[in-house]
Amino acid sequence: MPTPEPSEYVTIVSSDGFEFKILRSAACISGALRKAFDPASGFREQVESRFVLENFPGVVVEKICEYLYYNQKYAEAKDVPDMEIPAELCLELVTAADYLDC
């Protein structure tokens, strides 16, 4: 059932079952998530406010959520400090970023 008022938070689920509840506005920084949660799309993700990232483990999804908030925080700022990314996560993260378009 599509709810008329979209919830404030959405849930991102990692491949190993970790759930991350983040602000809808932050999630929508990612192109893929924006499309998935678009009220007009009618995807199941939109109905459930839940998005499963089947290919990425919790550590990666956690970092993605961190990035989404980081991006939201610095949306208007100048000279934004780079977010710290652990080197060992880089490869997975870059693939995830490509997939999520963020």
Binding site: Y67, K73, Y74, A75, D82, I85, A87, C90, L91, A97
Partner: peptide, 19 residues
Amino acid sequence: TFRGAKTLQQLCIEKLAKH
């Protein structure tokens, strides 16, 4: 531009180049 944050891809790619 340097308004707002870099994309996650950009951040990762820069980090990868460093390592």
